[in-house]
Design a protein around this nucleic acid. Structure first.
Lengths: 352, 352
DNA sequence: GAGGGGCCCGAAAACGTTTTCGTGTTGAAA
DNA sequence: TTTCAACACGAAAACGTTTTCGGGCCCCTC
């Protein structure tokens, strides 16, 4: 309609206020911060002017001067994934509460992207960051970029997908215990031939969850059948693998390390003519909307992603704001909890 | 283990390099930028030193000097929602490709949070931002905060949930057309009594989708029954409302404006003893993982969130980098597409 | 041998803040 | 009247860059 909005007022600086009111820049700055050095009269005049024209200090200049940005970085492998989305929510919440911004970068599970992300975040844009390492990085085992930024004094907190070789604050869940509890629940409900659908071992959390599965079996004297373990390499094409795997095996329970695997499993079982939970019980990891809304709704191990994000942000900001640096790094463990839903509640007839 | 990492090297500045190499700061700066003013010998010496100690220019100082941050903001109402997650992916991708960072803020659908977010983003931290307005803001109809930042010369692009009263670049989908096509598909497959589960009218996209529904009915001379329209106010407790609504009505098709409503609808129909798609066809809006993995998988209107995000980022960065400002604002419309799945494919018997 | 270019480099300003320090004016005490 | 504190404000430095400008030095040309 009209090119120039009615009132076009470019952003105001201290210098402009000073010139306009015929005082010095320092006077303006002090007046706005209620310094006792400035007389009431001058202070009120300046504050009124600033309010009228909606003065807001330039954040970049403040960052440069104070050598802190009040911004934290968050590097995630992916985002179209309820778990990481909830982590973001948690981080964002406490960051905002404590006066920090959140700069989010996506590595897309690529090592190179992750390296780029770290470089961007470490060049002064942030005071520290939270990282969940990319799959490719875990596979590669190359952590120079991490060591690099840490040695520059940048606080780092790892969340969920952590790497043990790096010393820093970490927030993880009891993956192994959570998996054990889930499998225990299956055993308690009569399952004896329990399949596990997990990831390859270089994914730290996948490996731990597999361990939990094994511990549960051992703890209940349920015989381990290696043939009931499926380790998925290519997540994108996992459905066929799962379908084939389950189609050829006689089982009465399934433990899947994420919602995607779990839903694929249910579908495969249905195709085989079996019902969940009448014939086979299914337990999943990662409690997301998918599990809640699926039919039958899925029992899951809730990772409390928001709590993890919140805890990570607390740790990071504490570390940033601590003047003393001699505190030991800690690894916070966020407890998982089981959410029982239809997929593990045996009944005679489907009532849905 | 050890408090101080093996090599603790704090971040390097031009000044330190200059002092170390006994040259001036300007010389260092020019040498690193390959200025012809600097002799080969000096240049190589400085570059070698910089590389050795891994010098990286301080981004904040650059931002202050250049008065541009190469960072764009992204304000979203929520994130645990596949659609917005894909938008982020799209924005992030083109932003990174064009050398920009992305600062993400969540309004949590709260007006006050949104106002705070805009203030933070507009105080110099970003060169412009992309916004999807909060539900509460749309309800309230108060857009002063938006007008404010725009009048300060900050480029703004709205995406999906836009407000017509504000003049700026926008990226939307053909909500109305998408809905019409979906309903048309239901009609083509024999549905005559089609229920719509939508949101209250102050949600812009909900209103438009309702319009599309009405247009489809009119275009096919299907009688409109106002009693088949359900407008959800409280999304969090929508399941009961939907269940009650569908339980009391005789229908052969359902059009839901999002995945959550759609899955609730399917569940309600199952409880009523009806099958999808044998007895009732269901079409949903917003193609996410939920629709793909649901049983039956849901036919949806794909919003192409990543494309929308990408387009928004392109528009924004173009606007930021344009020296001339006399270009008209444009509204990009990203085409939706229908994804046909099991929930609308009639068959005699469930084969799943 | 004087003037004039190149060649290299340094000083300084600028971006927008905050803060330390100095300084001029006032009023009251000596 | 002199002295000194309190008061109110300004100048300048600093954060880490980039860039403009000026200047010293060497060598070449008349």
């Amino acid at each position: 309609m009209n090119f120039d909005p009615l009132i076009m007022k470019p952003k105001l600086t201290l210098k402009q206020i000073a010139r306009e009111l015929d005082v010095s820049v320092s006077t303006v700055s002090k007046a706005l911060r209620d310094s006792p050095e400035i007389s009431d009269e001058t202070r009120q005049k300046i504050q009124a002017f600033a309010k009228l024209y909606n003065y807001k200090p330039n954040n970049i200049a403040l960052s440069l001067k104070n050598r802190r940005t009040r911004t934290i970085g968050l590097v995630l492998p992916e985002i179209v994934h309820d778990f990481f989305a909830t982590v973001i929510t948690g981080v964002e919440e406490v960051a905002n509460k404590r006066g920090y911004n959140v700069l989010i970068c996506l590595s897309n599970n690529s090592f190179d992207r992750e390296v780029m992300n770290l470089e961007m975040l470490a060049n002064g844009s942030t005071d520290g960051f939270i990282l969940s390492v990319a799959k490719e990085t875990q596979q590669k085992g190359d952590y120079h970029h991490l060591q690099e930024v840490i040695s520059q004094g940048m606080p780092v907190v790892m969340v969920d997908r952590v790497v043990n070789e790096i010393i820093c604050d970490k927030v993880i869940i009891d993956d192994s215990d959570g998996a054990r509890d889930a499998v225990q629940h299956l055993i308690d409900n009569g399952c004896r031939r329990i399949a596990i659908i997990t990831t390859v071992d270089y994914i730290s959390v996948g490996k731990l969850r597999t361990e939990g599965y094994l511990r549960a079996l051992r703890g209940n004297d349920v015989e381990l059948d290696e043939d009931l373990i499926l380790k998925i390499e290519d997540v994108d094409n996992s459905h066929e693998a799962i379908s084939q795997f389950l189609g050829a095996r006689e089982i009465d329970g399934v433990f899947a390390v994420n919602e995607q695997f779990a839903t694929s499993a249910v579908k495969a079982l249905l195709n085989k003519g079996l019902s969940v939970p009448e014939d086979v019980l299914v337990f999943s990891f990662s409690d997301g909307e998918l599990s809640r809304r699926f039919i039958p709704s899925l029992s899951t191990v809730n990772q409390h992603g928001a709590d993890m994000g919140a805890k990570a942000a607390e740790l990071l900001i504490d570390r940033i704001e601590k003047t003393v640096t001699d505190e030991e790094y800690q690894t916070a463990i966020v407890k998982t909890s089981l959410v029982e839903r239809e997929s593990t509640q045996k009944r005679k007839k489907a009532t849905v």
